[in-house]
């Protein structure tokens, strides 16, 4: 048991990232409020970026920008995960924008953010 917890502690960032992923995932799936769903989605994606960034970081090394003419590979962290995080952020921002736009349209039409109530109202509208 102690071994298990020390392994978790050694990979603290990854552990936190997976817990956050779970929180975001369940919020996106089960919460009925559209805005909270979008928050859940953002938590979920951010958790993955934390995971990526934690994997790319090497203790005691610097950001991969050459300043003092140091070109040795040992001086810098892995730049690829950072690049992936940036790309991922762009993707999740645009998806959040689409989701928010959709939520606004639904709210203007049905005056509620609760997806179950929207479904009921759509049923009642019947077209």
């Amino acid at each position: 048991m102690g071994e298990f917890f020390s392994a978790l502690y050694a990979n603290l960032y990854e552990t936190v990232a997976v817990v956050l992923f779970g929180i975001g995932f369940t919020t996106l799936l089960f919460n009925r409020n559209m805005i909270k769903k979008i928050m859940g989605f953002n938590i979920m994606d951010t958790a993955i970026y934390l995971f990526l960034a934690a994997k790319g970081y090497v203790e005691g090394r610097k950001a991969p920008i050459v300043v003092d003419g140091v070109t040795s590979m040992e001086a810098y962290i892995n730049p690829v995960p950072s690049g992936l995080v940036l790309t991922g952020i762009v993707v999740s921002v645009s998806v959040s924008a689409v989701m928010l736009a959709l939520t606004i349209r639904l709210y203007r039409r049905y005056h509620t953010l609760d997806i179950d109530e929207i479904a009921k109202a759509v049923q009642k509208e019947g077209k």
């Binding site: 992923f21 975001g24 996106l28 799936l29 989605f41 959709l102 639904l106 039409r109 759509v122 077209k127």
Partner: peptide
């Protein structure tokens, strides 16, 4: 743009995002 298609796209989006989150992880 009618109510049903808006709701359908919201549902589609939610399930799809769950899927792509798992794929990304």
């Amino acid at each position: 743009g009618n109510g049903r298609s808006l709701l359908a796209s919201a549902k589609y989006m939610i399930m799809s995002l769950l899927g792509s989150g798992m794929l990304l992880l």
